[in-house]
Amino acid sequence: MLAREHMEKSKNFREYAITRLIRVSGYSAIVFVALIFFFLLREGIPALAEVDLGTLFSTRWYPIEGLYGILPLITGSLIVTVGAMLVAVPFGIGTAVFMSEIAPRWLREVLKPLVELLGGLPSVVLGFLGILLLSPYLRVLLDLPTGLTALAGAILLGGIAVPTIVSIAEDALDAVPTSYREGAWALGATRWQTIWRVTLPAARSGILTAVMLGIGRTIGETMTVMMVTGNAPVLAVHLNSLFSPVRTMTATIAAEMGEVASGSNHYHVLFFIGMVLFLISLAVNLSAAAIVFRSKKRAERVLS
């Protein structure tokens, strides 16, 4: 009797311990986000004390002389991201529309894994191809002094964003009820008109999410841009800057962090940039999530 009771007790304890463990693991994501933010703040905030704001938001990034102007890096990230979106949005959404609305089933089954293949390629491989194939080609084609430009980065980052955009946009298009399309056909619309006037508008929040997440991936991308954009921290204010070398925030961290002394001003400024990147990615991803959330709510309201 006693032994049995003991067994029950130990089993209860085991169950209790496991449940505890699972619960704690469940909270881990919160802990990690907080920890990441904490460490970025801890190492990044001192930059504000060590480097005066005027210098920090100036246009010269030249750490050896204590010039830590991050504007060229921000504009570098911006121009590469904008360029990448100019590539990825039409190609991504176009491919999604093709796969979900036009292609026969078998073709779709062939295309899907191919696009996913692109998504699975390590970014360092794309950077490698950029150096060996894309940039020499661009240099000759556009008659530039070097092919390692914002444009090369934009094209490759566009390629990186395409799979993200395709898969989310395609899901959104698939989620549009068939009855919408049939309704439009019944009214005499062609399939093309239906796509433009019914399906795409109905899927717009999903497509917007797709683009947002594509932007998120692009801004955060590191190795590819570091390898192909030429690494020149010059202010990029014109679209013309696409044809010259630039330097993004991510590439700056990746290229310089390995060589700085920990605790130095330079080190703190790089963490500060990391903090900015963290906040940007947070804003982009959370607003994408909010779009999804809100449109889900709307759908629930409509359906109930």
């Binding site: 920890l35 990441i36 460490f39 970025l40 190492e43 997440l213 998120g216 801004i219 955060g220 991308e221 590191t222 991510t250 961290i253 990746a254 962090m257 790089l270 963490f271 990391g274 990147l277 963290f278 990615s281 947070l282 982009v284 991803n285």
Partner: peptide, 11 residues
């Protein structure tokens, strides 16, 4: 899921 990989490196 959205944090840039280089920021993970910093962390």
């Amino acid at each position: 899921a959205g944090i840039p990989s280089v920021v993970y490196g910093l962390f």
